[in-house]
Design a protein around this nucleic acid. Structure first.
Length: 393
RNA sequence: UCCGGUGUGGUCGAGUCGGAAAGACGCGCGACUGUUAAUCGUGAGCCGCAGGUUCGAGUCCUGCCGCCGGAG
């Protein structure tokens, strides 16, 4: 594959390139419609127009894609991961090489997740959780490892991300109230400690509230976390298997409780309906592996729903994945060809699907942004949901 | 023509003293939501054909057919 080199990322130290943004200019809301809003989040490595979808690049890469491709799809910020980069190749090594931006050739904003989700979603590896931190066997070599808020802060400082997330305790969707309450309590305890840790130059820090869909616990968590005055606030521990309607309902009132002058981040949602719902609730940022993962497992996201490209139904389908889509896949290749590539395990097929799926969610989000600016979001959402319910193809 | 071997889902291939047909790949279908994921789940076999022995046959017997090898 030959791809253009990102000149701007060459020979530059991300820490030197970064600039501190005056705190009163970090986030500005520029338009509203109901609870939904449009804004701009200014980071050390550039601005993010919100609402924004953030592609996930856990190990320092949005899987299969060149950073320039990710950028040209309209992505303004990507995620990196504290857990994975700490073990491979090591955050100290990345710091030595000039930070994550330079290391991965992405000169735009980077948000790093704290590792909390990884530790707690890999439940079987957890040895012990206490108020100080969590001990687990890491997935790379099985060695016992301890994560604390201080370590999560230190790793993210080494990575030099623009937005660092707090280490949180993420309980499964089906835990009882007692365990949920423990997670809320600990998440606050940890956030208080992480809040005072040193950070990279210009780095913003976001708190994460928990509480599942329990009204009292979520409310309590939001009050405690938001009370610590982070640069932004995330709703964590949702979209992990709970009832969808309850999740949306929770998001509606939970988002409204978050400080309006700070960015609000819903962690881990990426399907079309979900994106529209959380935007409507007043969420500014969201991320998800869905577009890139479903791509690698052979599915395309479209306005009419997901297409399983492996299906025989597409063998002679000469249409693009989605009519009217401007992505590199749709502008040139047929469903039949992509199906052939996917079924033959040709990487190009998975790359084309990745490009398309990311373009789909980014374009959907951009459409929402523009709609809000014109006071047309309600109609936009209705129309998009209609198409999902009654797909044209 | 004779001798020997062999015939199990689309393909390769395990089936021990006859007792509910492994596995892999492929194919069909489906999942996937702060990535241990180019992953995971799931479906489909008149055991070459016809008889026979037996309570019971992919396994034993007979005949036929197809393939492989050798002899002539």
């Amino acid at each position: 594959m030959s791809a253009p080199v990102d000149e701007s990322a060459q020979g530059r130290h991300p820490h030197l390139a970064s600039g501190r943004v005056p705190s009163d200019r970090v986030f500005e809301v520029t338009a509203r419609e109901g609870e939904a809003r449009v804004g701009v989040l200014r980071t050390a490595h550039g601005e993010i127009e919100t609402p924004a979808f953030m592609p996930v690049g856990t190990k320092g890469t949005v899987k299969l894609l060149h950073p320039d491709e990710v950028r040209s799809l309209g992505a303004q910020v990507v995620l990196g991961n504290t857990y994975h980069l700490h073990f491979r190749p090591g955050d100290a090594l990345i710091a030595e090489l000039g930070g994550l931006h330079r290391f991965m050739g992405w000169s735009g904003p980077i948000l790093t997740d704290s590792g909390g989700f990884q530790v707690f979603s890999l439940r079987d590896t957890i040895a012990r959780v206490d108020d100080d931190g969590v001990t687990f066997r890491n997935v790379y070599d099985g060695a016992a490892t301890r994560f604390t808020p201080e370590l999560a802060a230190g790793i993210q400082r080494n990575l030099g991300s623009d937005i660092a997330m707090c280490l949180d305790q993420v309980p499964a969707a089906d835990v009882g109230r007692r365990e949920l309450e423990e997670a809320v309590r600990r998440t606050t305890l940890w956030a208080e400690r992480q809040a005072t840790e040193p950070r990279a130059d210009g780095q913003l820090r976001f708190g994460i509230n928990q509480g599942g869909v329990d009204p009292e616990l979520r409310r309590r968590s939001i009050e405690e976390i938001a009370g610590l005055g982070f640069d932004g606030n995330a709703i964590g521990g949702l979209a992990i298997g709970e009832d969808r309607d309850v999740m949306f309902e929770t998001t509606d009132w939970a988002a409204a409780l978050l400080p309006a002058d700070r960015p609000r981040y819903f962690m881990g949602i990426g399907d079309a309906e979900g994106i529209l719902e959380v935007i409507e609730a007043g969420i500014d940022l969201f991320d998800c592996v869905l577009p890139t993962r479903t791509a690698r497992t052979g599915s395309a996201l479209t306005a009419g729903g997901r297409l399983n490209l492996r299906a025989a139904a597409f063998a002679r389908d000469e249409r693009p994945l989605e009519e009217g889509c401007d992505c590199p896949a749709c502008s040139r290749f047929s469903r039949a060809y992509i199906r052939h590539l996917v079924n033959q395990n040709e990487l190009l097929g998975l790359r084309l699907l990745s490009l398309h799926n990311l373009r789909f969610v980014i374009a959907l989000t951009r459409g929402a942004r523009e709609a809000i600016e014109h006071g047309a979001f309600a109609a936009y959402k209705r129309e998009r949901l209609e198409r999902l319910r009654w797909p044209a193809s």
